[in-house]
């Protein structure tokens, strides 16, 4: 292959990627403008709160408790190499709240919520239910997309907060029961060490990740090709995109909060 044609191919790839970013950005903007404009669909919104928030609690709790526990064990073992076992409460707290809580909850939401939104909307697209909505004078952006994204914006930060607490509790349980930490001292160290900014950054990340997860599910669902294959590929792409974007957003937000 000549260098020029390689360059042309790279250029096409880059343009394609940029165009995709543009389409997603336009979709996200359109979602937010539709959120503000009536009619509102309270029933759809309530169902989304239930689906995205409440029903995600078990998986979020389990993810957090195991991660907090493992974190405590690791920090204890690692810290022991230079007699720093005592930092377990502080590092568990900061690790959970700043990074692992939001990222793991975000990824679990991408797995659970993004995939189900994408599959549901793609199936509706393929079976002409989206067309039927339109003919019944109902805007799919308002009826399907806006309630889901708004529900994710509200519930995912809460899930992250709960995940943070459960993760710290997991670390606490392991530290107190297996590593002979003093219970009261562990809690006091945790509370003293955490700054308001840690908690704020955690919740803000949650809000971003929630919006990313729900938006990607809706976007790929609405773009779905025809047939079962279209639904499958929409679901796969939505989860991939959501996971990558969540990790990238996490990197950027961490930079914004802690190194500027």
């Amino acid at each position: 292959m000549s260098p020029l044609s390689l360059l042309a191919r790279l250029g096409r790839l880059a343009l394609g990627a940029l165009a995709a970013v543009g389409r997603v950005a336009l979709f996200a903007i359109s979602t937010f403008t539709h959120m503000l404009r009536p009619p509102y669909y309270p029933r759809e919104f309530a169902l989304s709160l239930l689906q995205i928030g409440w029903l995600s609690l078990p998986v979020v709790g389990l993810t957090a408790v195991f991660t907090g526990g493992a974190l405590a064990l690791q920090i204890y073992a690692g810290g022991a190499r230079f007699n720093a076992e005592a930092v377990v409460p502080q590092i568990v707290a900061i690790g959970m709240v700043r990074e692992l809580g939001p990222v793991l909850v975000g990824l679990m939401i991408a797995a659970r919520v993004t995939s189900s939104i994408a599959a549901e909307i793609a199936t509706m697209k393929v079976t002409e239910q989206i067309d039927a909505l339109v003919t019944l004078s109902t805007n799919p952006m308002q009826y399907l997309v806006a309630p889901r994204v708004l529900a994710a914006l509200i519930t995912v930060p809460l899930l992250v907060g709960i995940g943070d607490i459960i993760g710290i509790a997991g670390g606490y349980a392991v530290a107190v029961h297996n590593l002979d930490f003093n219970a009261a001292a562990y809690l006091k160290n945790t509370v003293d060490f955490l700054e308001p900014l840690d908690v704020i950054s955690s919740l803000v990340k949650g809000a971003f990740f929630g919006v990313i997860a729900a938006t990607m599910g809706c976007y790929y669902g609405m773009q779905s090709g025809r047939g079962a294959q279209g639904v499958g590929s929409a679901t796969k792409s939505s989860v991939e995109a959501a996971a990558v974007l969540i990790l990238a957003a996490n990197f950027i937000l961490t930079g914004v909060f802690f190194s500027l």
């Binding site: 509706m124 079976t127 002409e128 239910q129 067309d131 039927a132 909505l133 003919t135």
Partner: peptide, 10 residues
């Protein structure tokens, strides 16, 4: 409009 496949909201 009646759609060919029904297009009912399931």
């Amino acid at each position: 409009m009646l759609f060919q496949g029904g297009a009912l909201f399931d």
